[in-house]
Amino acid sequence: MNIVVPVKLVPDLVEELEIDESGAALDTTWMRLMVNEFDDHAVEQAILLKERGGGQVTILAPDAEDVDDVLFTAAAKGADRLIKITGPFEEQVNNHALARSLAAVVEELQPDLVLTGVQAHNDLDGPVGPLLAEYLGMPYVGYVSGVTASDGNVVAQKEYPGGLLAEMEVALPAVLGIQAAEEPPRYVAFSRVRQAMKSADISEQAVAELDLSGSPTVGRMFQPEAGERATMIEGDEDEVATRLVEIFKDAGVL
């Protein structure tokens, strides 16, 4: 099976986020990016499918700082082909524009299956998956945490609230939004990534222009107001524990 996995980089939420001078965008000066965690699950699911049934896995990513590392890491995990999409991506590109750019490249690859993360934390105009599916004329199923391939279709395990699952049969070619791979994304040692850097190639495909239509305009960004915040308990672990015991007693749970 020919599987394509588009991935994107997003701000690392472990770092402090700053809003820029315009007040309507994140300050990218010191922003550290990381691969969208759900995309990481999509990569893993693609490699699991390849290990089970053979085929080829192609990873696509729009250009960004450190994107080469992300692509080489995927190669070290077992991806066969790496494509970097270059273009004016340094601006705040929205998912409609990204999905249109991806669609042009994905179409030429003629995949049986496209796997992508079900969402990213900065998808203000919807996740990439359903948009991409529509631009490609393929069906879409999201919130997927398991995929079984058979002839001409796949059975996707779709998650609903409360732990309920639905088995959806999806005709190929199709796009699936991955919530979780069947196994946790594998760890690869840096030595293997370095090896991939020597042996794997990243091919580039240029996108000349981005069509940004389809996304709202942001008027203002802000951090959730302080004041609604928790009463913070200061002190070392013993002092915090003492206060917590009092709080638990007051709440009637101790």
Binding site: P130, Y143, G214
Partner: peptide
């Protein structure tokens, strides 16, 4: 913005060329 709504809103946005606001 759920396993139901998010599965169809994006496709409709792309198909009908209508803007989409999520989250």
């Amino acid at each position: 913005d759920t396993s139901i709504g998010a599965d169809v809103a994006g496709g409709l946005s792309a198909q009908l060329e209508l803007p989409l606001v999520s989250y």
